[in-house]
Design a binder for these strands. Structure first.
Lengths: 337, 337
DNA sequence: TTGTACGCGTTATCAT
DNA sequence: ATGATAACGCGTACAA
């Protein structure tokens, strides 16, 4: 029995059981059961280990090359409800596979490289997942690329050549569905209000441009992915000489900000203006009015990313997932048909 | 130089520099600088370490008793925007002190104890923070108590005797401020709709009961902390023979659900009914209408909890923080005096 | 079937 | 000023 408060080691158990430490290791690590050790010895060791409160020491195991069962998740902004949901799905899915999550919140500019170098790159994690678009964080991307573990990115926005696999969504298809819905309702003047023009939002904007090539000037608003910004963007759009009858928002967060802005202007949605979001966050179904949006298959994408990264990250990434339009109450025929 | 892809160790650097591994350790671990090693040697070692891409191996250090610089954060439900904000604040504050976060999402019932045993209890973390009320998760609390590292709980709701320190908010004071505000506006019939009756919400409910002892039956609604539930609760409250003129919600999430429910019923807030939330989540300022609520000092509480737990968790916990009422547009004089 | 011995990468304590 | 050496807890060839 160890004196003091020191954790119980295999050697402690071995001494108590009157066997060698290796025997304890054989019994407890459970390799090739029933072949190597006498039943009597096994039971004695197991009993003592339990009684003495033995716990394997993960660092000693890791030093021997065992996987840490830790997955590093680097997320752009966890206060973004979309990413919060993704982290939730990720943690559940990871745990189902026996892994835990180390959270790297990238929201602080300074020291981001530090945190990664210290925790993730330093091979404490078996795999690294990037959540969000990090193309502007060059140092971070460099660090992660240099990591000796597989890396997979989610919602990173596709670019020419990335050094890691990407699980993405077909933003073009989502925008097409939204635009088709608005067109079917009779909308001809559809603006885009896009928050941060990075990653998925950038792709959504590009798709909108493709589908509305002759949109009047001023029909594109970009800024930050925040509720207040959505309200501001709406004010500017409605102040145009030829205001839009519908707004396609880059994210649900911006869309809900637009709903708020409309209310402040004394306008009713969808009577005065139709609004379509993107992502289908939980709040979208409970906003005033309930938001028509494009649903992101978060759980499926997280599962795919986990499959990919735990397989080494070198397999072919899955085809972009296809999002689905969810029609609710924030879209209707335009007032002036 | 190491063959293959093996990470660079001190021994590799030592070989390249023509010195012993101990010398490399002395130089790199930076203990007692300038005394022990020649400047020439130091510079050569430092240069080679940099060139060769040496990284300290955290597990080997941990095996020697070094702290892991990992903080385990166990959160009830990270999709709850309130906790997402807390995790954000926590990760920033932790990183400022050189720590990283291991996320334990407790939202899955089965296997929670397992995840803890594997990741936290097994002394991988230097400290453990509990975010939310875990009184109903007995196995988890038992596991955490048995952990050999300090534990501090946040928003855990105070109970008779907990085995770990708690950083809490004075929910009574918050409810008093909200009720005083409503009373000053002329409200006499104030109901409480409280989501999950655990932790802080439970305390808020108790405070409401104390301040409205003669509330008609049916004025208390409890359920889940979800948007839709808020809407349902409002429907039931307004169906009462003597419906309330104001509703105090247990959380902003419920409050925003109530706003949505009112809109669906064709009622305007605050004309038909006043609504007060609790927490001041980001959305509260951008809801329709903007929500009067009680602001939770999240950053301050997180800082205090980190101070406490990194000091060993045994100091006296700080006095409950006092939340502050934020008056916005969801409260007004009742229609019928 | 079981014990001995070694190494994983570090830090710390001795010598030299 | 620096080098050899011994731990830390565990897994595993190898010997017995």
């Amino acid at each position: 029995m160890p004196e003091g408060d020191r954790p119980v080691t295999m050697t402690d158990v071995a001494r108590a059981a009157g066997v060698s430490q290796s025997t304890v290791s054989r019994v407890l690590s459970g390799a090739d059961v029933a072949i190597a050790v006498t039943d009597a010895t096994r039971e004695r060791v197991l009993r003592l280990a339990r009684e003495m409160g033995y716990r394997p020491h993960p660092f000693a195991r890791a030093l021997r090359g065992a996987p840490t069962m830790l997955i590093g998740a680097i997320v752009r902004d966890i206060t973004d409800v979309f990413f919060a949901r993704a982290i939730d799905a990720l943690s559940l899915e990871a745990r189902a596979r026996g892994y835990s999550l180390v959270l790297g919140n990238a929201r602080a500019q300074a020291g981001e490289a530090l945190a990664l170098a210290a925790v993730l790159e330093a091979r404490q994690c078996d795999a690294i997942l990037l959540l969000g678009d990090f193309h502007d964080e060059e140092q971070l991307v460099r660090d992660v690329r240099a990591a000796p573990v597989p890396v997979v990115a989610l919602w990173h926005g596709r670019r020419a050549r990335d050094s890691f696999a990407t699980v993405a969504v077909d933003n073009g298809a989502g925008v097409e569905a939204a635009m088709a819905h608005l067109a079917a309702l009779g909308h001809r003047r559809i603006a885009f209000a896009g928050g941060d023009p990075v990653g998925d939002v950038r792709e959504r904007h590009a798709a909108w441009q493709r589908l509305a090539p002759d949109a009047p000037p001023g029909y594109t608003e970009t800024g930050t992915n925040a509720l207040e910004w959505g309200a501001e963007a709406l004010r500017r759009l409605l102040a145009l000489p030829e205001p839009p009858t519908a707004v396609l928002a880059g994210t649900d967060v911006v869309a809900i900000g637009i709903l708020h802005g409309a209310h402040e202007l004394g306008l009713r949605v969808p009577d005065a203006v139709s609004v379509v979001g993107f992502d289908d966050i939980a709040l979208a179904a409970a906003s005033v009015p309930a938001l028509t949006t494009v649903r992101m298959p978060v759980a499926e994408m997280v599962t795919a990313a986990l499959d990919l990264v735990l397989a080494g990250g070198t397999d072919e990434p899955p085809l972009p997932f296809v999002p689905e339009l969810v029609v609710r109450a924030s879209t209707a025929r335009p007032a002036s048909g």
